[in-house]
Nucleic acid binder design. Structure first.
Lengths: 245, 245
DNA sequence: CGATTACTTGACACCGGTCAAAGCCGGTGG
DNA sequence: CCACCGGCTTTGACCGGTGTCAAGTAATCG
C-alpha cells in the first residue's frame, strides 16, 4: 500500500508534493499492543512515523488516572522534531499492533530542505496536529458527553479517510470504552451509556471494533463537527479538508 | 522595561541568546479591551507579539458559547508563523489594554536564520505553547472544578514570573469569572463558587484583579501543578522551568 | 450619581461519577 | 470440542458535583 504519509502530504499540500520513494524512511518495525512507542519524558532525538495501526498520546495524572490527549492514525508523527534537546511531555502508546519507523530529526530536515513544497506540507501536518489539540480543549470543556464522543468519532473517521482508510459509512475504531472515556474526560460507565445512546439514536452501529454510520451528515451535525475547524490547507478546490456542500 | 520576549528567550535558551535590540520589531500599537487582535479565520500573514497586557485565544461554539483555549502574557506570540497560506482556527482577544507589535513571517525567519541559538529559543517558545495546550486538554478532562481553576492560576503566575511580572506571592489576574469559566469549562456561577472555595481554604486572596498567594507550594500541590509538565528548556541549572526542590 | 457590568446567593434539577455485580465475549489449554 | 478464564461491556442503585434560573448586591464607569 502507498505510504500513508505520502497520501496525506499530497492531499495537504494540494497535489503531488511528495513521491512515495522520498518518504521511505527504511524498514518499519512492529510494535505490539498495548505497549509504549515513546515513554513519558523521553529525550527527543527523533520522531516516529506511524505506518499502520493506531496509537495515542497520553499523560498519567494523579491517582493513576490516564488522560488521552490525542489519537494517532497512519501517516501521523508521534511528535514534532526539535532543533534543541528536549523531553517529551507525554507518552505514546499503541492501541493496536502498529508498524512504525523512526525518523531522525536530521533526515526530516534534509528532506524538507531539498523540497520546499514538501517542507510546507510537512509543516501543515504539525499545524493540523496543533489545531486538533485546540479542538479537543474546546470540545472537552464545552460539549456534553454524547457530543464529545460523537465528535471524536467524526474526527477519527475524517483523519482515516484522509489516508484512505475510511469512507463515509465505515471505519475501524480500536479504542476500548475505557480509552474513549480517558480521551473525552468521562468515566467508563458513562462512556458505555453514551455509546448506547448513539446507537439507540441510530447515529452509529458497531460490530466488533468497526463503526458503521448510516448518515454521516446527521452524525456530524449532532456532534457539531465542523471540518472548517481544521485549517484549510492546499488549494481550496483540491483540499480534502473543505467540506462538501 | 526590557522586551518581555527577550527576557523569555534568554531564560528558555539558557543564557543571553538574544539582545533586546534584535527583538525590536518596530513601534508597538495599543489595543483596547475587550477587542480582537485577530478575528477568527484570519489569513495568517504575520504573528503578533504581546508586549504588555494580557490576551486570550478563543473559539466561538454553538449557541454563543465561548471556549477560551489559551491565555497570552507579555512575550507571547498570538500564533505560530506558517510558510504557506493558512487561516487561523481561533480568534485572539484582549483581556486588558495591550501593547502589541506585528511581526511579519519573513522578519522572524530572517532573524532565526541569522542566529541559530535564537532560532532554537524561538522554536522552544512554540513548543512550550503546544505543551501548555496539551496540559489544558488533560486538566480540563480529568480535574474537578476547583483544581482546574487553581491549576490555571499556577500556570498564569508561572508564565508571568518567567517574564518578570510575578513573584511567588503576587500576580495580576485580569480574567473575569466569566473568562475563568469559559477557559476551564465551567458555568460562571460555579467559577464564582470555586474562587470562594479557594479563598476560604486560604490558598489565595484577591484584591481588585490581583491575586495574593500565602503559600505557593501549598497552592501548587492542591492544583497538582507540576512544572515538569512543561518541557525542560535550556541547561537544567539555569532553566526557569525546573522546579526548585 | 445613575447605569451598566461584575460578583454573589439560594433553590433546584440533572448530568455524570462511583460502586458493585452480572453478562459477554475471545482466547487458551486440557 | 468444550470448559475455563480474564478482559471488556453492560446494568442498576445511588449520590455528589455542576449547571440553570432568578434575584439581589457590589463594583465600575461615564
Amino acid at each position: 500500500m502507498l505510504n500513508p504519509l505520502a497520501t496525506k502530504l499530497n492531499r495537504l499540500g494540494g497535489f503531488r508534493v511528495a513521491n512515495a520513494y522520498e518518504l521511505e524512511f527504511g524498514p518499519g518495525r512492529k510494535v505490539a499492543a498495548p505497549q509504549d512507542i515513546h515513554p513519558h519524558g523521553a529525550e527527543i532525538t527523533h520522531t516516529t512515523l506511524l505506518l499502520s495501526g493506531m496509537a495515542f498520546r497520553y499523560k498519567m495524572m494523579a491517582q493513576g488516572r490516564r488522560a488521552i490527549i490525542g489519537i494517532l492514525v497512519p501517516g501521523d508523527f508521534t511528535n514534532p522534531i526539535f532543533p534543541s534537546r528536549q523531553q517529551l511531555d507525554y507518552a505514546v502508546g499503541t492501541l493496536t499492533t502498529c508498524e512504525v519507523v523512526d525518523v531522525p530529526s536530521r533526515h526530516l530536515q534534509d528532506l524538507a530542505g531539498s523540497n520546499p513544497r514538501l517542507a510546507e506540507a510537512l509543516w501543515s501536518c504539525f499545524q493540523v496536529d496543533g489545531a486538533i489539540q485546540r479542538d479537543w480543549t474546546a470540545i472537552i470543556g464545552q460539549f456534553c458527553a454524547d457530543k464529545r464522543v460523537a465528535h471524536l468519532l467524526c474526527e477519527i473517521r475524517r483523519r482515516l479517510e484522509l489516508v484512505g482508510l475510511a469512507d463515509r459509512e465505515t471505519f475501524s475504531l480500536p479504542l476500548k470504552q475505557q480509552d474513549l472515556a480517558d480521551a473525552m474526560g468521562l468515566s467508563v460507565v458513562h462512556a458505555n451509556r453514551v455509546m448506547q445512546e448513539l446507537r439507540r439514536r441510530g447515529l452509529i452501529r458497531t460490530v466488533n471494533r468497526t463503526v458503521f454510520i448510516p448518515d454521516l451528515d446527521q452524525l456530524e451535525e449532532f456532534a457539531g463537527y465542523d471540518t472548517g475547524a481544521l485549517p484549510k490547507v492546499g488549494p481550496p478546490e483540491t483540499s480534502p479538508w473543505s467540506r462538501a456542500v
